[in-house]
Amino acid sequence: MSQDITVKLTGVDKSYAEGGRHRTVLKNTNAEFPARQFIVVQGRSGSGKSTLLNLLGGLDLPDRGEISCNGQIINRLDEEQRTLLRRRQIGFVFQFIHLLPTLTVAENLGLPLELNQVEAGEARARIEQFLTEFSMLDRMHDFPDQLSGGEQQRIAIARAVIHRPALVLADEPTGNLDRATERQVLAVLEQLPEAHNVTVICATHSPEVAAIADAVYQLDGGGLQRV
């Protein structure tokens, strides 16, 4: 399913009305993210990093401009088409993890495969492969509340790539973790582009994450600049 993909932003504007005020988050933003790279977008809190990822993932629409994935203009797709794009082409890693509490570890991994109608046998094999790779095979029948924070985030990362997407969007994936756990999670993230043929775009203000990136961008005052 993965392929060479270029994610491109052209003249993108985005602003919000919040508490009666109008806040511009992105202004005439342009960028092109090459395939199979680990890209970090840095910026202070409130600079618009999450907004940028929402736009890239088709979760939100820009006020102006274009966002494209391999030539396909995301913001011209209707809601259902964007949902299907997320289902097939994109994986997400959240700051607060968001594993589904009523599903076991194995079932959380199985959910993207079920949505993509992967055959049961193939799905089982893939789940076991990823759990082995992430050293969590013995936890496959546990529920998320039985795991530590680092273990949960590793499972979340596995969930983001198990359906072989082209793009992984990670929003502050280590924001809630201690230093030691952060290093474990970073080790997993770092090898994703090569091991799983994905482009990873990670929003963070952590210098440790930026240190392992192939490219670092700075989001400031609505503009995106490569550092």
């Binding site: 993932g57 949902t83 299907l84 997320r86 289902r87 968001h98 589904l100 993207p112 949505l115």
Partner: peptide, 8 residues
């Protein structure tokens, strides 16, 4: 989360 993962 389900909608983000691609549930229609």
């Amino acid at each position: 989360t389900l909608r983000t993962l691609g549930l229609l």
